[in-house]
């Protein structure tokens, strides 16, 4: 009967789907770049230094009190990670359709940088007219970088700082709610946006060996974990049982037919 052929087709398509999904997952299994220093200074208040802006000197708090802030530490002479950090961040922000109110405060940690250098730097990324982005300098570099545990080292042979790429998330009370070290995926950025808006994310994964079947892929967009291939493993028993029962029905019908003959 046709129904049998239909069943067969269905089994086949289920198996093919499973295999396709599995192979997809394997190729996307990713390394995590988690750095334990990210956990330092969480929920501490950032040093309220005076910053120099185009509108004149003002306290850092006037920025973060108006809206949650991502603080980025760079210097304009950098050949290294600063440029990719900024361009990556601005790209990610453009790609994410973010409804939340927040600002990006780019502060130079190089005493040689003037406000005009920062302006030029902003132009380089076409960010000079973007209201979300503010490029500033400060005279109080030391207290600022100490309060976020950022330790650039000057290397006089290459005339460059040896430093990390660091994003610091500040809520409107100036609390450091999340840090990101290194250039990371947009998931991390979204988690930061949640946390600077005082949303509670109940858990996060640690770096670990690649796991073939992990249960949920953590997705901070929703603040929840998303189902990945592991869920398929959890659904598999019901699916397999379904297939078993269908096969049994088929078998039962066949046996009855032979009995009739």
């Amino acid at each position: 009967m046709d129904i049998y052929r239909f069943n067969e087709k269905m089994y086949k398509s289920i198996f093919i789907c499973t295999i396709v999904l599995l192979s997809n997952y394997i190729s996307f299994a990713q390394e995590s770049n988690y750095n334990y220093d990210e956990e330092k200074d969480i929920y501490k208040v950032i040093s309220n230094v005076t910053i120099e802006t185009e509108q004149g000197n003002q306290k850092l708090s006037t920025i973060y009190e108006t809206s949650p802030t991502i603080l980025v530490l760079i210097y304009t002479r950098c050949y290294g990670i600063c440029n990719p950090l900024i361009s990556n961040l601005s790209e990610q922000i453009q790609q994410l359709d973010i409804k939340k109110d927040f600002r990006v405060l780019v502060v130079s940690f190089d005493a040689a940088d003037r406000l005009s250098d920062m302006e030029r730097y902003a132009q380089q990324f076409d960010l000079q007219n973007d209201a979300r982005w503010i490029f500033v300098t400060t005279k109080q570099i030391k207290p600022l970088i100490e309060s976020v545990n950022f330790n650039p080292k000057w290397d006089s042979t290459i005339q460059q700082f040896d430093h990390n790429a660091l994003l610091v998330g500040l809520n409107t009370n100036g609390y450091i709610t999340k840090k990101i070290i290194g250039i990371r995926g947009s998931n991390e950025l979204q988690a930061m946006l949640k946390e600077i808006n005082n949303e509670f994310i109940v858990s996060y994964p640690l770096p670990r060996k690649n796991m073939l079947f992990s249960c949920f892929t953590y997705n901070p967009t929703t603040g929840k974990s998303e189902l990945s291939i592991g869920l398929l493993v959890m659904l598999a028993p019901a699916l397999i049982t379904f297939i078993i029962v269908l096969s049994l029905i088929k078998l039962g019908k066949k046996q009855r037919k032979t009995l009739v003959k």
């Binding site: 956990e39 929920y43 709610t177 509670f200």
Partner: peptide, 15 residues
């Protein structure tokens, strides 16, 4: 527990 004290900034973190 996933919903309590969520709108506050903790005063201290213990690892």
């Amino acid at each position: 527990p996933y919903y309590i004290f969520t709108d506050e900034t903790p005063n201290q973190v213990v690892y």
